[in-house]
Nucleic acid binder design. Structure first.
Lengths: 322, 322
DNA sequence: TTGAAAGCGCTAACAG
DNA sequence: CTGTTAGCGCTTTCAA
């Protein structure tokens, strides 16, 4: 089964490769007779153009890469799902790279741009220095990571989310609200969730209590830390968890410690992936518009690829799910 | 920022492109002097070889595609994670395609093989006819889908899983055990989970009760169906759910219907993704060796790519998590 | 030890 | 309307 090329088709049809190329791309003038001869040859040989050769010639791969910390993580897998779906509408294919929050990996994936394997890149992971990104040329958009002034960022309105959650807890009577934070770095707009919490607490003259649990920590370790909150002497009647998985740990521990939700304890999470809302129907959470984030990321990236002008920041609205 | 090519490097270094290629690939004889001149030029120009040109010449892309029903689904996102990690060890990149259980999409992704965009494909989705696959040439392995005799399959020991789960429930005293099944088609080895359930039930002279809930159904619809089991007149003291998400719905409904787990009702799920075990620490489930499945899939695919001999079936062991 | 030249499969001037 | 030819960036004979 050696590969059939355009040349074989041309020979079979008794025409030039140019003509075959013309019918393939529907470009220029082609007589009906020639077209049908070519079509027939294509059919008989069961020919499909070599896309790598095309990519090579056109310096355009119709491929995009998405870098995430890990694709196993409801937020990123949902994001990836929608991004792939959007891209496929325009005939693009999607590569996935798991940075594992390691700069070495991130750098490796970023290289795909320079190697011209992809036409663009969407990064939802940020572990290398800004200066390094400054040196990278190529089409990049970032999702929920501030990289530098050159790279457009798509984010949720994290501040609003933190505000809505905290205000809701207060409005429902909570006074001792703990914020469990994934403690993103300052580069991460997610840190605004905690800032909003602080602002709202201060405005209401309530005491802030922030527990930081690094995002990159292992799941069991994160769970242990959440449990510690329950075993500690800290008094609390509300929890604002920076993401839904942390919230689920809290829900889990609340049950073990016989604290009824929402009567004895109110919990609000963040992210609102379909999966987490599905698995925890009672979960109150700040819903990020993941599908819209995906759409916007793709839209902006495709604009960059087409050398169109884009904004440097897109902030999308969030809302409480109940 | 026009692209730097090997020619620019050659000119800068005052040598031929052949020589540059030689130092790039570390092939043939190169004097130290020449090598260092070339290295210097590469550095100064900040040159990276165009991988598409390489792929084109070598007819080898160092890319693989994974087709799944949807990447947002803990099982597949975890599988994708491990597959990507394995592939990257050998310098391969991974494309993801969501078939959405639609043959049109599946066919579209499969085309990537013929277009020579990828060196191989891992399919965890199967919605087109076997005859169509028969006509496809290219390196393919399938995960948990029986496609045809040509295509190697990697599967869990689904029968064993169903057996372990059902026996465990019986051993713990259950007599009226419902099996909630994702009702995979016959092509799917997952159907063996249910077959094992039936066998064990029959052997113990217990009445089978199978509730089928199509895998492709929407989440809320699936949840509704599980709820129906609780509202119906059916009497049951155990549930074997074909996958953990269904199990989680059952857990959820059990709580609403005040049926204590495991006192009043025992539930065992299937899949055992890290995520689900993490989110539901009490979940009893048949753990598929997802990481091993990924490793084996990649191993076999790379063997195919290297034209090595492979088996047609690899069945990997499963176990109960508690 | 190095270079010239061919060619991977395709598209696009350019000519006719 | 159709064909000839060059060339995309790279690797690899083949010669020197």
């Amino acid at each position: 089964m050696s590969k059939i090329t355009i040349k074989n088709v041309a020979e079979k049809a008794g025409v030039s490769v140019t003509s075959v190329s013309r019918v393939l791309n529907n470009r220029g003038y082609i007589s009906d007779d020639l077209r049908s001869k070519v079509m027939e040859a294509i059919d008989e040989l069961n020919y499909t153009p070599n896309e790598i050769a095309r990519s090579f010639y056109k310096s355009e791969t119709k491929s995009v890469a998405l870098i995430v910390p890990t694709i196993h993580n409801p937020f990123f897998s949902e994001l990836a799902f929608y991004i792939e779906r959007e891209l496929s509408k325009d005939g693009y294919h999607l590569y996935i790279g798991n940075s594992l929050n390691d700069s070495v990996n991130e750098r490796e994936y970023l290289k795909m741009l320079k190697e011209q394997r992809v036409d663009g890149m969407i990064v939802g992971s940020h572990n290398i220095e800004m200066e390094e990104y400054d040196k990278i040329t190529g089409n990049i958009v970032s999702v929920e990571r501030k990289i530098n002034d050159e790279i457009p960022m798509i984010e949720s309105d994290n501040y609003l989310g933190g505000k809505l959650a905290t205000e809701k807890l207060i409005q429902q009577g909570c006074r001792k609200i703990i914020c469990i934070s994934g403690s993103q770095t300052i580069d991460s707009p997610a840190s605004n969730r905690v800032i909003a919490y602080s602002d709202v607490m201060q405005k209401n003259n309530l005491k802030e209590q922030i527990v930081e649990i690094p995002f990159a920590e292992r799941a069991d370790e994160k769970h242990r830390r959440v449990k510690e909150i329950f075993t500690s002497k800290i008094d609390f009647d509300g929890i604002f968890a920076d993401d839904d998985i942390l919230a689920s740990y809290a829900i889990n521990e609340a049950e073990k410690f016989n604290r009824k939700i929402p009567e004895d304890l109110k919990i609000i999470g963040f992210d609102g992936t379909n999966l987490m809302q599905d698995l925890f129907p009672n979960l109150v959470t700040v819903v990020q518009p993941i599908e819209k984030i995906a759409q916007k990321s793709v839209e902006v990236l495709l604009q960059l690829i087409k050398h169109e002008q884009v904004e440097s920041l897109y902030t999308l609205p969030v809302k409480l799910n109940k």
